[in-house]
Nucleic acid binder design. Structure first.
Lengths: 400, 400
DNA sequence: CTTGTAAGTTCAACTTGATTGAGTTAATAA
DNA sequence: TTATTAACTCAATCAAGTTGAACTTACAAG
């Protein structure tokens, strides 16, 4: 959400240490466990530097010794691994009528979650609710508050440089509010605010199918459709934090059933009018099938309901077009579909996507399928919120 | 072009100094000239640190004193500015049949340029040619070779993780070659290799309409259409360096003249089949107008040739669609159109673009028009190559 | 005309954190 | 048993940023 020209900040020994801590933690996370020498090789740091950093991380409880490994000759190296419960992060998804909360540990494992309906959604009420949910989750999980490293709050955008904007339609009373500062004060810890797609994208990185990737795109099904792009391990947020409005791009609107990628059509329509949860519900409603809960959707899917199938065909065609655009513009190592849809539906959508054959994405050296299914369900955004905090531990920040 | 998971590198005092040098240089560049105290405030560094860095930069000839400025009370601060000729960068654009070369100074000013046709375009011949062009340009400009900070080479992609790939169709003999290493050895200096759109995008930042922006998208007209995205002052390159294939995205193909954004059509076609230099030449050829040089195109434009006008209408409509996609996915502060087209044509295209009204891009607080015209002409990529090097001086690198 | 204050700079001592090199330990190979 | 190798620890060194006191100049107030 920075604007104007790039104003970078100076660094010093303290920042250097922070950076190197992230590097070391990130390597341990990826490898599972490592010895000092291996980390030194991988990071380019001296063994001594790694040793000092490990000592302090062990003091703080973030690392634990995990046996010794001797590869051939030489002194067996003590291995270090993340202490899964060496720290926790809170994740919240604030919606107009409810708040979902999650609690993740360092490994990205879900320790606790709850969803509460929201009577009022003005800033003060939301803060009150967040504090309450935090307390309840700490109580029922028995986790020491001091182990909380921060919180990530997922909110509907769009954002401005200093706060939220135009949310009047979705969340009244939130215009031009610096939500990060507000929540940070309310919860007495560092807080990150993001949109649902970005959070979910990072959630997939912390625990999901993109844990080993640093370049990927995540198509998120909320009420609309969003895109979260991770580039070199960091979120692509755009000039004002509103990048990834995939639902707004125009795709060929199907006039009949199941058009292929370059198919014949006579109208363009926003992707989210064809391939989103609300478009699905609308489609079913139009067909005389009142349906709203995930369970109902799942049973329709299990029964291979023909109306559902029709929607899937149309949605897949539209998504194929969108994936094509995403592949060509972002060059991700993979495209993940996830979010607030039942898993079987996501699976069908992934299966239904037809990819262009002639594309730079059709490389020989690719490690991953071009399209994958990620976290699904209505917690994926809230979990992603917490993941933002966890991911921050492993990803050196650019000194903006 | 990194793949797999994010493997960040450790930092140390030396890296810190490199980073802070970039920060300081960047601030001086943006402000034109500054005193030490102002830089310290802007960077968060101590005055002493800034002072040390300035001393070393002045020693190296990158900075010069630029008078004193007294703002109110206190000791008048000596101002420092970039020494425009404190360093130079080479830029090359390698095409199948020719190489364009440029020489830029620290301010991004073009000191020299030349274009040579290429007899053979195998790696060895190209290296030989580059060395020759470098010598000639150094001779005729009288610049000391030691002032060369590096070179940027623009080549057609696509790229693989370690080299070029699939370029067989465009440049034979270049498969899987590590071009950066090859050129770096040939020229005895650091070399960066990029595609045309990315280079041109950075060129616009070093000297052009986006000098003051850190988030923008650059639509580049080469033979096809490319997109260069600058995010937080750095290029968005994608997982394998092939991001920004804007020309491949499908847009509604016009069946008649001048369709509007969501207009009626019955076919989708790649953007570059409608709005690129080669599509223009094809269109004119189909209309019986043999035309190839920029001059011929300019005179057609001056004469308001109706066939040209027809192409402009179709191209503008297609570009409107593309700009809509780019705005929604990348959230740039502005979209720049530039590249190898005559200036008047670019101007017409910019004028012809119709923007969606309801968009997050339609913000109140925007500093820039949503669409701008950037560098044009056949040197814009080669100049961008040199700009990659210059820009690197002002932009701290993420320790990958 | 003198004096006080503010802003910018410089000098020297200090601190942080990474690097270097010598020495120690343990496992394998000869 | 001994040599070799890998991993680690300790202590000294070094690079670079920070801190605080002193110095310089310009403006403002008395």
């Amino acid at each position: 959400m920075s604007n104007g020209s790039p104003t970078f900040t100076g660094s010093n020994a303290e920042q250097t240490r922070r950076h190197n801590r992230c590097v070391v933690l990130g390597q341990i996370r990826r490898a599972g466990s490592m010895g000092r020498a291996a980390m030194a090789r991988a990071s380019g740091l001296s063994v001594q530097a790694v040793s000092n950093i490990i000592a302090s991380l062990e003091d703080e409880g973030m690392l634990i010794e995990a046996g010794q490994r001797s590869r051939g000759r030489g002194l067996p190296a003590p291995q270090y691994a993340l202490n899964p419960n060496g720290g926790y992060a809170l994740g919240f998804e604030v919606r107009p009528e409810s708040i979902s909360a999650t609690l993740l540990n360092l490994m990205g494992e879900l320790h606790h979650s709850e969803r509460k309906t929201l009577r009022d959604n003005d800033p003060e009420s939301v803060c009150h609710q967040l504090r309450q949910q935090m307390s309840r989750m700490l109580d029922s999980s028995g986790i020491d508050e001091r182990l909380l490293l921060g919180a990530g709050v997922v909110m509907p955008g769009p954002f401005t440089l200093t706060g939220l904007a135009n949310t009047a339609s979705v969340l009244p009373h939130w215009q031009d509010i610096d939500a990060e500062k507000l929540f940070s004060n309310a919860l007495s810890m560092p807080v990150l605010v993001e949109n649902d797609a970005n959070a979910a994208a990072v959630g997939e990185h912390v625990s999901g199918c993109t844990a080993s990737l640093s370049n990927y795109a995540f198509i998120y099904f909320g009420s609309g459709v969003g895109l979260g792009v991770v580039h070199q391990g960091r979120l692509f947020r755009g000039g004002s934090g509103n990048a990834g409005e995939l639902g707004h791009i125009l795709v060929p609107a199907p006039c009949a059933v199941g058009q292929s990628l370059a198919g014949v059509s006579n109208r363009m329509a926003p992707l989210e009018s064809i391939a989103s949860r609300s478009s699905l519900l609308q489609h079913l409603k139009d067909a005389g099938l009142g349906c709203s809960t995930d369970q109902q959707l799942e049973s329709l899917a299990a029964a291979r309901n023909p109306e559902l199938q029709r929607w899937l065909d149309k949605a897949s065609a539209a998504l194929s077009h969108a994936v094509h655009v995403v592949e060509n513009l972002f060059d991700p190592d993979t495209v993940v579909l996830g979010g607030a849809l039942p898993d079987p539906l996501l699976a069908e959508l992934v299966k239904g996507i037809s990819l262009a054959e002639h594309s730079t994405a059709q490389r020989k050296d690719r490690l991953m399928p071009r399209v994958l299914r990620g976290h699904s369900g209505d917690l994926s955004a809230a979990r992603g919120g917490a993941a933002l905090v966890i991911n921050g531990l492993f990803t050196p920040q650019t000194l903006s």
